[in-house]
Write a protein that binds this DNA or RNA. Structure first.
Length: 429
DNA sequence: GTTAATGATTCAAT
DNA sequence: ATTGAATCATTAAC
């Protein structure tokens, strides 16, 4: 509280120091208005300015008082104000008109998007929902994390608003204080309204730069929170049984080409209530894991093959039955996807199969039924003797195809197995 | 507590 | 951009 008088005092002193001699001179009654006299006056004034620092405080105060009482004071101030304004304007022209800060706008946009600076609850939940959607989960069961995220966000939000309010209040207080000060001082030194205005804008700029820091750190906090929340994405949630079944059905019924198109992925995603990228992930994992250890998946393959075969048969018995016997030897296609070339007996058949999907969708459908039926045939023993049947599902068949990096597969062990006899961990962990 | 299963991520190749 | 492969990280079963 005692700063104000001190400041005023010191400013007043400086103000006085600027033009101390003139009034004094006039006061002393040298009324002569001729040119020489004026020059003389100016000389005196300058002299007095130079010696002002030597003067005592009391003397300065006395002069100030004298100045304030002088009848010419208003006119003089007006002139000085005008001059000041002109110089100020020239400076101003150079440094003002700064463009609306891009950085600030970005921060504002982000805070708005994250629901920190927006309207009360709506923005926040919207952001949380967006984050939840980004997390890829089926929603529902990550409500704990969800609320956690929301709680943290609202905490940040609260801090942000409190601080912002504080800054605004401080800014207003300081502005009024400075304005009062300047108004007060305008009695003792030339201060134009424009100057006050300018000072206010400087203050506002300063405070807004402080606010920007606040916004920046808030943004950082939100980003950290967000990244932490999104890390929860890594928290694996098993798909529900139905979804897995749908995916497996598709996989095994398209075993010769288990690469669902974008549309198929979307369809599957919709059916399984998961995202398209999750479908892609699933198929990626499935392909690689299936390929790595076909033996392990035999049972599963048979099961789904049988199931889809039943469906297919019930839908269109004719077509499927017509197809199945036509390629009895190609049964080895159990693992036929991705195979490319090899001059085999299998090859010729399988490349044919491979070709079949490249064309119309009808072809693909037929293909899927063919795949399916092959499994059924093998499972039920089909025709052709057991040996053939075994070969159908053995990794040997795949190796024979040379399709994907044969090698490694312990064919000698797996081939005779009827089921997942050789269950060795595929993805050693 | 150990281990297999599994969804997600990363990185290189295409 | 998509895929394969390796790997990570979590879940579920034992």
């Amino acid at each position: 509280m005692d700063e104000q008088p001190r400041m005023m005092h010191s400013h007043a002193g400086v103000g006085m120091a600027g033009h101390p001699g003139l009034p004094q001179h006039m006061q002393e009654g040298t009324g002569g208005a001729d040119g020489d006299g004026r020059k003389q006056d100016i000389g005196d004034i300058l002299q007095q300015i130079m010696t002002i620092t030597d003067q005592s405080l009391d003397e300065a105060q006395a002069r100030k008082h004298a100045l304030n009482c002088h009848r010419m004071k208003p006119a003089l101030f007006n002139v000085l104000c005008e001059i000041k304004e002109k110089t100020v304007l020239s400076i101003r022209g150079a440094q003002e008109e700064e463009p609306p800060d891009a950085q600030l706008m970005r921060l504002d946009n982000m805070l708005l998007a994250e629901g920190v600076s927006g309207p009360e609850k709506g923005g926040g939940s919207a952001a949380a929902a967006a984050a939840a959607a980004a997390s890829g989960g089926a929603g529902a069961d990550n409500s704990a994390e969800h609320s956690d995220y929301r709680a943290k966000l609202s905490q940040i939000r609260q801090i942000y608003h409190t601080e912002l309010e504080k800054y605004e209040q401080a800014c207003n207080e300081f502005t009024t204080h400075v304005m009062n000060l300047l108004r007060e001082q305008s009695r003792t030194r030339p201060i134009s309204p424009k100057e006050i205005e300018r000072m206010v804008s400087i203050i506002h700029r300063k405070f807004s730069s402080i606010q920007m820091q606040l916004k920046q750190s808030t943004c950082e906090a939100v980003m950290i929170l967000r990244s932490r929340f999104l890390d929860a994405r890594r928290k694996r949630r098993n798909f529900n049984k139905q979804a897995t079944e749908i995916l497996n059905e598709y996989f095994y019924s398209h075993l010769s080409n288990p690469y669902p198109s974008e549309e198929a992925k979307e369809e599957l995603a919709k059916k399984c209530s998961i995202t398209v990228s999750q479908v892609s992930n699933w198929f990626g994992n499935k392909r690689i894991r299936y390929k790595k250890n076909i033996g392990k998946f035999q049972e599963e393959a048979n099961m789904y093959a049988a199931r889809t075969a039943v469906n297919a048969a019930s839908v269109s018995a004719h077509g499927s039955q017509a197809n199945s016997p036509s390629t009895p030897n190609s049964a080895g296609s159990a693992g036929s996807f991705n195979m490319s070339n090899s001059g085999d007996l299998f090859m010729s058949v399988q490349s044919m199969n491979g070709d079949s999907y490249q064309g119309a969708q009808v072809g693909a459908n037929v293909q899927s039924q063919v795949d399916t039926l092959r499994h059924v045939i093998s499972q039920t023993g089909g025709y052709s003797d057991g040996l053939t049947a075994n070969q159908m599902y053995s990794p040997q068949g795949i190796n024979a195809n040379g399709g994907w990096q044969d090698a490694t597969t312990p064919s000698s062990v797996t081939s005779p197995t009827e089921g997942p006899g050789s269950v060795h961990s595929d993805t050693s962990n």
